[in-house]
């Protein structure tokens, strides 16, 4: 939903609820909005979604986001005081089953708007070689060191790495003071370039940390069932191919082995149908 529309409807709801004195509804709506925003931030940073079924709380998830960003970029996205406030209010909210006082409701809505003001960077963007040194003093060094491919083994490599580290540190310091989308993306780029030069790899975006925290990974795990079907399919095809090969070499045994062909290719057809069915269900 459009943010402006949310604001209008929230305002309307608050007006009505204050007339009916139904503050609990505002509290619940405030918490859902806050929860959704925190979820969105996590997903946009490529972190696994909050495990609501296991009762993972908003402030716990915020701590995870902070931890991951700290490991990767030395920046905490959320202020400690903000997490503490949410912790207090959320625990109270859950204990009192949503019946919290007005100041807390105001705090929740304030925090929600604070979080909404964060411009989340695109951590999935691809960095082209042309972009690598754009808007940086490194452009000059890059020019002197020739093509980007030559940087990896070139004489300028240590100097470029040193420059990159300096710029990265400056960006991180600036981020620690005030979170800013452009600076974050720049830090991400610098980090990628530095790692690319250090590890002699191309411009891939690599988020450090465990794979289990990555949302794409969690989604990809579901494919394992497909592989099971493909495995059986492949086996039957291999067996069928051997029987066909045998029939070509010894045509006189074709009648003898033809039931096996049916036994092998019949399940193949069945597996293809299962595969298609499963794919449709997943869609």
């Amino acid at each position: 939903m459009n943010q402006h529309l949310i604001d209008l409807k929230l305002k309307k709801l608050i007006e009505l609820c204050s007339e009916t004195l139904n503050y609990k509804k505002i509290a619940v709506v405030g918490f859902i909005l806050l929860s959704n925003r925190v979820d969105e931030i996590g997903v946009r940073f490529g972190i696994k979604p909050r495990n609501k079924e296991k009762g993972e709380k908003i402030f716990e998830y915020m701590n995870i986001i902070n931890e991951i960003l700290n490991i990767n970029f030395n920046i905490p996205l959320f202020k400690e005081s903000m997490i503490e406030d949410i912790c207090t209010i959320e625990l109270l909210f859950l204990r009192k089953r949503g019946d919290i006082s007005l100041p807390y409701i105001k705090d929740i809505l304030t925090i929600y708007y604070d979080l909404r003001s964060i411009d989340i960077p695109d951590v999935f963007q691809v960095i082209s070689k042309d972009q690598m040194f754009q808007g940086s003093s490194l452009k000059v060094l890059s020019f002197f060191s020739g093509k980007n491919n030559e940087i990896k083994g070139g004489k300028m490599r240590p100097l470029i790495l040193q420059k990159l580290r300096e710029e990265e540190r400056q960006a991180e310091m600036s981020l620690a003071q005030q979170f800013d989308r452009t600076t974050f993306e720049r830090t991400l780029q610098l980090k990628t370039i530095r790692q690319s030069i250090e590890n002699q790899r191309s411009g891939k975006i690599r988020i450090q940390g465990a794979l289990k925290d990555n949302i794409n990974y969690i989604r990809s795990k579901e494919n394992i069932l497909y592989y099971l079907i493909i495995g059986w399919l492949l086996l039957f095809i291999m067996l069928g191919a051997i029987i066909i090969f045998e029939s070509i070499i010894y045509p006189e045994i074709t009648v003898g082995v033809s039931p096996y062909l049916l036994l092998v290719f019949g399940p193949c057809l069945f597996l293809i149908l299962v595969y298609r069915f499963y794919k449709r269900i997943r869609r």
């Binding site: 409807k9 909005l33 929860s35 979820d39 997903v43 979604p49």
Partner: peptide, 15 residues
């Protein structure tokens, strides 16, 4: 993904 993880909120119904 965001739509999947977020909780649904029907403002119109609440209003």
């Amino acid at each position: 993904i965001i739509t999947q993880v977020q909780e649904s909120l029907d403002f119109d119904k609440l209003i």
